[in-house]
Design a protein around this nucleic acid. Structure first.
Lengths: 188, 188
DNA sequence: TCGATTTGGTTGAAGTGTCACTCACCCTGC
DNA sequence: GCAGGGTGAGTGACACTTCAACCAAATCGA
């Protein structure tokens, strides 16, 4: 049975063209393995997870190395409770610390610690190297372009129109109101 | 600030070519949103998760509608403990049941129940529809081909050579033997 | 100005995935 | 036949994600 490796066997793909089937199954498989491999590699090379890394990148990316919690949520496209939990765990490990916001009594900042900085400095190069080795070393220029274009198309589709309504949960906790077609990072 | 939505801001991408940076960030963003959307949609349209769906597809894909646990793990590229936990949960919900294997006292089968069958029959069409709408309706033939080729290249890289060593954990529980003197996917 | 609503953020519980470990059974060489 | 190792599977602890509920500070509206 041909080393059939993944979820999408028949029922689904029946309603896709054969070429689409193949492409979809290849994509799903690849994407799963790639995610798994990157996470694994990250926690082998350094002592942080991909999620930690994402948070740390946002922090180092700001002069001042401090970001408001909700801004973090928005730029990472995470739910605020996820940020909250995750920051709590990272704080426990000393990678970041919280500070409360003087100008807004509700708010608080997430601040990079020295440990956090050295963690990401240790992790970043090998992560980039991994990405190069697993992806870009294999692709020629036209493929890189195609990857970007495909990704952008799909992403735009996801964050536009009705799809955006659901995503908008991230910004507004009241999905009912959102339905029309704004909110949720309307491109341009 | 240009709706900057995702993890890979600067530090990482510094060591990739600018075009590669853009492509990578676009891909990561897209892939995250797409996964999230597909899961969400699946659990809205039907009462199962993507993981449930994957398992059910494997089952319906077999005449007899029963599969050995380890075969399931291998075809889904999941760890066997993940399968074990997940099947336990699905069993609790009545989607599948376990049966032990007569010919091998250690083994056991996962068997599709009627409830499981109707669950996947309900879920599959709208899932396919979603995939079409979010992906393939946006892509022309050459893009579909490119998607497949890129995915296959990367997947092959991931499952070949040293990278495969890590993945092999899935098949062999003894990682020690697999590590000549590097580990961590040393190029070439 | 005061109540209602919104906003920024936390918390707890439940579902999921991973790791390390265990257990039972199979198979081989002696 | 039986000791040793391999293999199929389950388990418990812990990390992570989501959902719903909550709280307190801020803001809006009459």
């Amino acid at each position: 049975m041909m080393c059939q490796l993944f979820p999408y066997a028949e029922p689904v793909t029946r309603w896709l063209e054969p070429e689409q089937q193949q492409a979809w199954r290849a994509y799903v498989r690849m994407q799963g393995e790639l995610n798994a491999h990157l996470s694994r590699q990250m926690s082998v090379d350094s002592d942080i997870s991909m999620a930690d890394f994402a948070v740390l990148v946002q922090l180092t990316d700001t002069r001042d190395e401090r970001v408001r919690v909700l801004e973090l949520a928005r730029s990472l496209h995470w739910e605020k409770s996820r940020i909250s939990h995750h920051v709590a765990r990272m704080e426990k490990r000393g990678l970041v610390r919280r500070e409360n916001c003087r100008s807004d009594g509700r708010g608080s900042f997430v601040v990079l610690t020295d440990l956090g900085r050295s963690a990401i400095e240790a992790a970043a190069p090998s992560h980039a190297e991994t990405v190069r080795k697993l992806v870009f070393d294999l692709l020629d220029d036209s493929e890189v372009t195609a990857l970007r274009e495909i990704s952008e198309k799909v992403f735009t589709r996801l964050t536009t129109g009705e799809c955006a309504a659901v995503i908008a949960r991230c910004d507004a906790d009241d999905p009912m109101e959102v339905v029309p077609e704004e909110s949720g990072c309307p491109e341009a």
